[in-house]
Every structure is written in C-alpha cells, then in structure tokens.
Simulated assay, not measured.
Amino acid sequence: MNAVFYSALLLTIASPASADSVPRYDVAGYCQTVSDVSGGSAMIYNGCVDMEQIAYNGLKARWGSIPRRVRSYCDEVGRVSGGSYSILEGCIAMETEAANGTSTFKY
C-alpha cells in the first residue's frame, strides 16, 4: 500500500505540470497530425509550428506566475489534444478569466 502511495506521489512531483517550467510537447508530431488531416499540407504544418512557437514563447515568459492548479489542469487539456501549446495557452486564458468572474445563478 505504501509503495503505491509513494509511486503516485513521485509521479505527481515529477510530472511536467508540477514543475516550474513549461511542459515539453512533441510539436513536430502534433503539427504533422494537424497537417495530415488536410492532406499533408506543408503550409498547414509550417503555420502550426509557427503558432505553437508563439504560444510557447508567451507561456515561457509567464509560466511561474500561473497558479499551479491551472497549470496542471490545462497541461492535461493540452496533452489530450496531442500536445498543443496553443490549446494550453487558450485553456490558461479561459481558466484565468473564469476565476476572475464567478458566475451566479439568478431566479
């Protein structure tokens, strides 16, 4: 039982989302998948890589100021999509906006 707990704890501590640096995604693989959907377009691939680079650079500059909970959740969202910094960045923006304006229900 303790071994399972410590293994889970180690995985949590070692995961990219809990680190103080932006997680590493396979941008080439992700962008190839995006390109393949459109028939293997080099223009789509290059545009995807450019978008991912811009998103990564923006995240890198402010990663430490993003709450750990948001980083962790949005890293999972970014990974589910195949590893996209653009999706990670969008998730962080939406989570931050939602945290700044809690909805209320009105009758």
Score class of each variant (00 low, 15 high):
Lys60His: 08
Ser21Lys: 12
Pro23Gly: 01
Ser7Ala: 14
Asn46His: 11
Gly78Gln: 05
Leu9Thr: 09
Arg71Gln: 12
Ser65His: 01
Arg62Gln: 12
Ala98Lys: 10
Val70Ala: 15
Ser38Lys: 03
Ser41Phe: 15
Val34Phe: 00
Ala3Met: 07
Val4Asn: 05
Cys48Ser: 02
Ser7Gln: 08
Cys31Leu: 10
Ala17Arg: 11
Gly78Leu: 04
Val22Glu: 10
Val77Asn: 02
Tyr107Pro: 04
Ala42Asp: 14
Tyr30Val: 13
Gln32Met: 06
Val77Gly: 00
Ile13Asp: 04
Asp36Glu: 15
Trp63Ile: 03
Leu11Val: 11
Ser18Met: 14
Tyr6His: 08
Ile66Tyr: 04
Tyr30Gln: 03
Glu97Lys: 10
Ala19Met: 07
Arg79Asn: 04
Ala28Gln: 13
Cys31Thr: 11
Lys106Cys: 05
Thr96Cys: 02
Val77Ile: 13
Val4Gly: 01
Lys60Tyr: 08
Arg69Asp: 09
Met94Lys: 14
Glu89Val: 00
Ile66Pro: 05
Ala98Leu: 14
Gln53Tyr: 12
Cys91Arg: 09
Leu59Phe: 09
Ser41Thr: 07
Glu52Ser: 04
Tyr107Cys: 00
Gly64Arg: 10
Thr33Gln: 05
Ile66Arg: 05
Lys60Gly: 00
Thr96Ile: 11
Thr12Trp: 02
Ser84Leu: 05
Phe5Gly: 09
Ser81Lys: 02
Pro67His: 05
Ser21Leu: 10
Ser21Gly: 02
Gly83Arg: 04
Thr96Arg: 04
Thr33Val: 07
Tyr6Val: 12
Ser21Ala: 10
Ala42Trp: 14
Ala93Ser: 08
Thr102Gln: 07
Val49Thr: 14
Glu76Trp: 06
Ala98Met: 14
Thr33Phe: 00
Glu52Arg: 06
Val80Cys: 01
Glu89Trp: 15
Leu59Asp: 06
Arg24Gln: 09
Gly64Thr: 09
Ala55Ser: 15
Ser15Ala: 10
Leu11Tyr: 06
Cys48Gly: 01
Cys31Ile: 14
Tyr25Ile: 07
Ile54Asp: 13
Ala93Met: 12
Thr12Asp: 12
Asn46Lys: 14
Phe105Cys: 04
Ile54Asn: 08
Glu76Thr: 05
Ile87Tyr: 02
Ser41Pro: 02
Lys60Thr: 09
Met51Val: 00
Ala3Arg: 06
Ser103Tyr: 01
Leu59Thr: 03
Leu11Ser: 12
Ala93Pro: 01
Ser15Tyr: 06
Tyr30Thr: 13
Leu59Ile: 01
Cys48Pro: 05
Ala61Ser: 13
Gly40Glu: 12
